[in-house]
Nucleic acid binder design. Structure first.
Lengths: 335, 335
DNA sequence: ACCATAAATGTATTCGTATACAATTGACAA
DNA sequence: TTGTCAATTGTATACGAATACATTTATGGT
């Protein structure tokens, strides 16, 4: 069943049907009504491929993330998808699992599908795939790369605001030895977070000690491994800031496993403020990264680039801020 | 850039280019090589809309879930997407948030996109949307509806296997009063789970007490509310089975908040075995629902229906089984 | 009633790929 | 060399919707 069938039944031409469907105002109300009735009766659904082919736009955006299993992403996706659906756009989601090959494959699929733009929350890996998109004039919005260009926008998180609050909060509680468990080595996003930590420490007038900085992997396991190492130190920190909440939860687990407690023996600060962080015990003090604002920034960046793919994109910034719960407190006095 | 451009540069016709791209074997190897070289050089990507329009198939499947924020779904999606990508299929994901209107909208979008089939993990709401799909001859695979038909398959979970193991396990620990916190009222999936509980209780020769059965909402909050009610009972149960892990975690929180402990004061059994269940404290004994098998069942159901949309679908079954961790133990003796 | 003009509708073509069918080329035998 | 047949390659068209342009119909003024 296609528009011509509808046209025949409504006694009009396919052009009129198309106009009715697209809400053109140059159709007489009576005619439009008649056509609409036929469409409803036959429950006609237009063929999107034909529209995309003709129109050159697919009204869909790609979303590439590294790992849907990290709760941060589903929470982001919910907002992102919600915003798109409200605008009658579709979302093509893909996961890279941090593999460059999957990334390539994914981008290829998005090109085939004629997406109107790509939101890349896994910019980590390489620049190759990014160039592929740019070359094909597909608007791209990255996270935390801090580079813009023609058809290339970026949404960055202002880590420093939240990190400063976290360090100040800990300092006020009389912590002087504040450690940091980072993300996977070699990712720009990890660097940004770590730099914010270093800067916040220095700004607070505390001494930066590289021995207190450990590498993680953005997952629970990385937090565990790093925390084990930190526990083995003689002069160990009394507070830990983690690169994300999962890492913080990993640290928490190790501390509990060792029979120590939070926040009496260690204060822990996470990053992201995933829903989970309010559920674990003790509820996690964490630096909130507002998902909905982030999603909104991505969508508006995508939209404006889609409107004019030739223009230079914008740099968006989303602030982070501390949420104090129960995993931070004054350190236990040691003799 | 289209196939004709490639054809011109390679000195062949567009038909040959198409044949090369689709791996037809009636192209002379030398010619194919020449064409492939041009494609690579120009990094040509074919237009999927045109292919879909011509071919009538989009090589993509729809996935409809209620709530991506429930960790069960991301874990499922990871497998589902992985399997599809390996077969060069795309996934169009959509969330319903348990709203019938969103469901309708979502299904409409999938029809427009010409998906080759839909996996519906949110069959809960109504039958209307389902009929829309059937009418449009889009293969449909539902979860736990236990109805099949032309182009309609179903993947059901054999709850009873895991539930029986759970009840037996608790009985062996000397629990006689085993409560149940269910899912949202009115969903078939909730009924299936609850029926399995009732049957398992009776099979174990225990007394079924309806006062021990409470309604939840598949989220932490539902587990909390229900657990508060259960705690207020005079003759309260000593063990609780929850309809999913989030519910169990909600119960866990309330118990801790009241200064009681698990498994000393209460034994708790979850359902799903989300990754989280191994991370909470204490690690949750739970009934595992194998995500990967589930995803595989969905994909094979989709594929066989897509191959022959006219045939009657199949009923798949996936077993559940108990995973014992630390949230279950012998009940504390009460005087 | 008639013309000018605006409003409404229709006709024909385009988007890029796949493929039925047609045409050409090549291999080999006689 | 020519014919036969298979292997290649090319030509023309269809898929379904959108739209430039053409045509018809309605409206209003005289």
């Amino acid at each position: 069943m296609d528009m011509r069938d509808i046209a025949k039944l409504a006694g009009v031409s396919s052009a009129t049907v198309s106009r009715v469907i697209n809400g053109s105002d140059l159709v007489r109300p009576g005619t439009a009504e008649r056509v609409r009735r036929v469409i409803d009766e036959l429950k006609f659904v237009p063929n999107g491929s034909a529209t995309t082919l003709k129109y050159g736009k697919s009204s869909s955006y790609g979303l590439i993330i590294p790992d849907i299993t990290n709760p941060f992403f589903p929470e982001f996706i919910r907002s992102f998808e919600g915003i798109l659906v409200a605008k009658n756009q579709d979302m093509l989601m893909a996961t890279t699992d941090f593999h460059a090959s999957k990334m390539q494959q994914t981008i290829h699929r998005m090109l085939v599908r004629q997406v109107d733009g790509v939101a890349l929350l896994a910019s980590e890996i390489e620049t190759g795939p990014i160039e592929t998109l740019i070359r094909n004039r597909v608007p791209l919005v990255t996270m935390d790369r801090r580079l813009i260009g023609r058809g290339l926008s970026d949404v960055s998180i202002h880590y420093l605001s939240g990190m400063t609050q976290a360090v100040d909060h800990l300092k006020q509680l009389k912590h002087h030895k504040i450690g940091y468990i980072g993300g996977s080595a070699g990712l720009t996003i990890s660097d940004h977070r770590e730099q914010a930590y270093v800067k916040a420490i220095e700004r607070a007038g505390l001494k930066f000690d590289p021995r207190y900085v450990r590498v993680g992997n953005y997952r629970v396991s990385g937090g565990e491994t790093a925390m084990v190492e930190l526990l083995e130190m003689k002069d160990r920190p009394t507070a830990i800031i983690a690169a994300n909440d999962l890492t913080a939860i990993g640290a928490l687990r190790v501390i509990h496993r060792e029979g120590l407690s939070v926040p009496q023996d260690f204060s822990i600060v996470g990053f992201d403020d995933i829903e989970l962080s309010d559920i674990v015990f003790p509820p996690l003090t964490t630096i909130r990264l507002p998902r909905h604002e982030l999603a909104e920034a991505f969508v508006s960046a995508l939209e404006s680039s889609a409107k004019d793919p030739h223009a230079v994109g914008k740099q968006y910034t989303v602030k982070s801020s501390l949420v104090v719960r129960s995993s931070t407190g004054a350190p236990r006095k040691r003799k």
